[in-house]
Simulated assay, not measured.
Amino acid sequence: MKIAVAGGGSWGTAMARLLSNINHEINFYIRNEMTRLDIKNNRENSKYLPGSKFSKEINLYENVEDAIKDIEILVLAVPTSAVRPLLNSIKGKLSKNVIIVNLSKGIEVESLDRISEVSEEILPDNPFVALSGPSHAEEVGNDIPTTVVVSSKDIKYANIIQNEFSTDKFRIYTNADLIGVEIGGALKNIIALAAGISDGLKFGDNTKAALMTRGMYEMSKMGLALGANPHTFNGLSGMGDLIVTCTSMHSRNRRAGILIGEGKSVEEASKEVGQIVEGIKTTKSAHMLAQKLNIEMPITEKLYEVLYEGKDPQEAVKILMTREKKEEIEQNFFQ
């Protein structure tokens, strides 16, 4: 198939390489000239995905309109905040038959919309598929076995992506719960930031396990309020992605959290990580969405205060530990 990949970061590069290796024709849209030249001359994105060489020819574009001509699938590998501007720029120029596959994991701050909702608003006639799960670009780019999930309002489009993107190193499951897949992928970044801060404060495994477990509970609560299937959060886009993002040094969110826990500002931590840390903005949008839905999400709330109101992380932890005593399971997700 003819596929355009938009976004020259690590995940876009890994996906362009993976798809080219299974003989799809790839149009790779990259805004940064140095990155385009690097891939053209060295067959590698040495800044964002060093060591992962392209073995097949791909087409490199600096103009998105040229990149999307006659394609069948458009892969979005740009930050959440860049999705709306990108889709607006191709509105009226993209065939209605093109399937949009989104790789970013976040909730738009301004609208509190999931990416599928942004896409449906701007390009309502184009099928939308979310791809999520425990999938560090660094490992996908090195052909390390990885398993993900794809979801769409119409499962036939998820099945198409499952068939076209699967390899012997990249296994794909389908899930009809688009809301749950998107919410799990977005909110796990919040918990990974918190887990990183815990590491930066030199707390231990007990603390991280508690953050991950209670974080999963917060993810499930928001998912349930939005109409998700709670079982989705036990799957790849929930528990799977949460585990890998909270425990790996490949995780930008965890690395940023460690730096914040060690005393650096949010701006300093983001700069040192060197790529977009989605969890920072997602913490803000999830905090606002929780207030809108009247959901109690204490980890998200305290992380918001640390990131946006200057609260000391040690104080935030103390407040979480001394909250009103509660039952562990306050609501039944599986009625």
Rank of each mutant, 00 (worst) to 15 (best):
M1T: 11
A4P: 06
V5D: 05
A6C: 05
G7E: 01
G9Y: 12
S10T: 05
G12E: 01
G12Q: 04
A16E: 09
A16W: 11
N21R: 13
I22P: 04
N23F: 12
E25D: 15
E25W: 07
N32G: 08
R36D: 01
L37N: 15
D38I: 00
N41V: 00
N42R: 14
K47T: 09
P50T: 08
K53I: 15
K53E: 13
L60T: 03
Y61W: 04
N63A: 04
E65T: 08
D70S: 14
I71L: 06
L74M: 11
V78E: 02
T80K: 02
A82D: 11
A82I: 04
V83D: 01
P85M: 07
S89G: 07
I90D: 00
K91L: 04
K93C: 03
L94A: 01
I100A: 06
V101F: 09
L103P: 00
L103S: 04
V109R: 14
L112T: 08
S116Q: 05
V118F: 12
I122P: 02
L123V: 04
D125Y: 14
S135V: 02
A137Q: 03
A137F: 08
E138F: 08
D143W: 13
I144M: 11
I144R: 14
P145H: 10
V149D: 02
S151A: 15
K153H: 14
A158E: 05
Q162C: 12
Q162Y: 13
E164N: 11
F165K: 06
T167H: 13
K169C: 11
F170P: 03
I172E: 00
L178T: 12
G185F: 11
L187T: 09
L193A: 11
S198I: 01
D199N: 14
L201R: 12
D205K: 15
T207N: 10
G215C: 05
G215N: 01
M216E: 14
E218I: 10
E218A: 10
S220F: 05
L226G: 11
A228P: 00
A228Q: 01
P230Q: 10
F233N: 00
N234M: 14
L236D: 12
S237T: 00
G238L: 03
I243H: 06
V244P: 00
V244N: 01
M249T: 13
R252A: 03
G257S: 01
L259R: 06
G261R: 02
S265D: 11
V266R: 12
Q275S: 13
I280C: 11
I280M: 07
S285F: 11
H287A: 07
N294G: 03
I295L: 15
M297W: 09
P298M: 07
I299R: 04
T300M: 06
K302L: 05
E305P: 01
E309L: 14
G310Y: 11
K311T: 10
A316N: 02
V317S: 08
V317Q: 08
I319L: 15
I319E: 15
R323S: 08
K326R: 15
E327L: 13
E327G: 09
E328T: 08
E330H: 12
N332D: 15
F333K: 00
F333R: 02
Q335K: 14
Q335M: 12
